[in-house]
């Protein structure tokens, strides 16, 4: 602003303005920033400290151990890591096409009067408390899965081995489907915003070459928005990885590595919700905290990988950089 130029003699006035408002504002903002950092490190510190007992007892065996045995006090995290990853994968496989499809439909195909209202309804799905999803999963979706969906899956896909075992409706698959419904609003809303932000000049470029509506969407609009759609998907994945209540209510809560989509299982989040407050001793408590730490690392890893991937894609081919 009023920094002296090198050629003129340095004036004696203050280099920085000293308005009280500025000072107070800078202080408040700085405090906020520092506070967030302190909070992050405090959480990390507590997790590290409290998982120490388990880490000393099992070392890396904890990360690759497939047993979670409360009686013998042997703890391995694989049942919950696999439960977390499988349910989240189901959520994305089902949720992504529905969410992105709805976003594309609403931004490019739907009549104008329909766009706002339907978009809002989809976003409202995000406002439903997760305990309500859990409730619905337990009493509506679960029974339907048990009597209709799972027997059908077993009949047609049983040969793959992934759809075997008794159909109970409270299992990995049901939890994954609930998660799919829960990630749709996140992915759909953000995708919709990125798609709507594609410059009209890109659309007109395609149209003026004689592209049909569908070709315009496919060639000009979706590629331009892909990084935003990708980011939306990662956000949705983040939500699926950490979702607790709805999963706890529908996944069956068994501390074992799932062998089929119909297995009862446990995610890291549901493990913490189920066992932390009634753990049988300090070692189990510490092991649960260490599992939480691993969930944190998984989320972090997903985000970092996503960023790297995005950066590479954009560097090679251009596109919107949001």
């Amino acid at each position: 602003m009023d920094r002296p130029t090198p050629s003129s003699p340095t004036p004696r006035g203050p280099r920085r303005s000293r308005h009280w408002g500025d000072l107070i504002f800078a202080g408040l903002v700085g405090l906020g920033g520092a506070g967030v950092l302190v909070l992050v490190f405090a959480i990390l510190g507590v997790l590290l400290y409290q998982s120490g007992l388990s880490f000393r007892a099992f070392g890396w065996q904890f990360v690759i151990g497939t047993q979670w045995d409360v009686r013998d006090n042997i703890y391995g995290v694989v049942p919950f890591v696999s439960g977390t990853l499988i349910t989240s994968a189901i959520a994305l496989v089902i949720g992504f096409p529905l969410a992105v499809g709805s976003a594309i439909f609403l931004t490019t195909q739907a009549p104008r009067w329909m766009r706002g209202p339907v978009g809002t309804v989809i976003e409202l799905l995000a406002a439903i408390p997760s305990v309500v999803y859990g409730f619905w999963g337990l009493y509506v979706l679960g029974p339907y899965m048990r009597t209709n969906v799972e027997p059908a899956l077993h009949r047609y896909l049983g040969w793959t081995g992934a759809f075997n075992g008794p159909a109970t409706g409270t299992d990995i698959l049901t939890a994954g489907v609930i998660l799919a419904v829960m990630v749709i609003p996140t992915i759909s809303a953000i995708s919709r915003e990125t798609l709507a932000a594609v410059p009209i000049s890109q659309r007109e470029a395609a149209l003026s070459l004689g592209a049909t509506n569908w070709e315009t969407t496919r060639v000009a609009i979706v590629p331009y928005a892909r990084s935003g759609i990708f980011g939306a998907t990662i956000l949705g994945l983040g939500r699926a990885l950490g979702e607790t209540m709805a999963v706890t209510m529908t996944i069956g809560n068994r501390d074992a590595v799932p062998t089929s989509f119909f297995s009862q299982g446990q995610t890291i989040a549901s493990l913490i919700a189920n066992e932390l407050t009634n753990s049988n001793g300090p070692l189990q408590y510490s092991a649960i905290i260490e599992a939480g730490l691993i969930l944190l690392f998984i989320s972090l890893l997903v985000n970092v990988l996503a960023r790297l991937l995005l950066w590479r894609v954009l560097r090679v081919t251009g596109g919107s950089t949001e």
Binding site: S201, Q202, V219, Y224, R226, G319
Partner: peptide, 12 residues
């Protein structure tokens, strides 16, 4: 066919 005022190549 049409050419627009601002160049609008497909950016991706």
């Amino acid at each position: 066919g049409m050419v627009f005022q601002k160049p609008n190549p497909f950016v991706t």
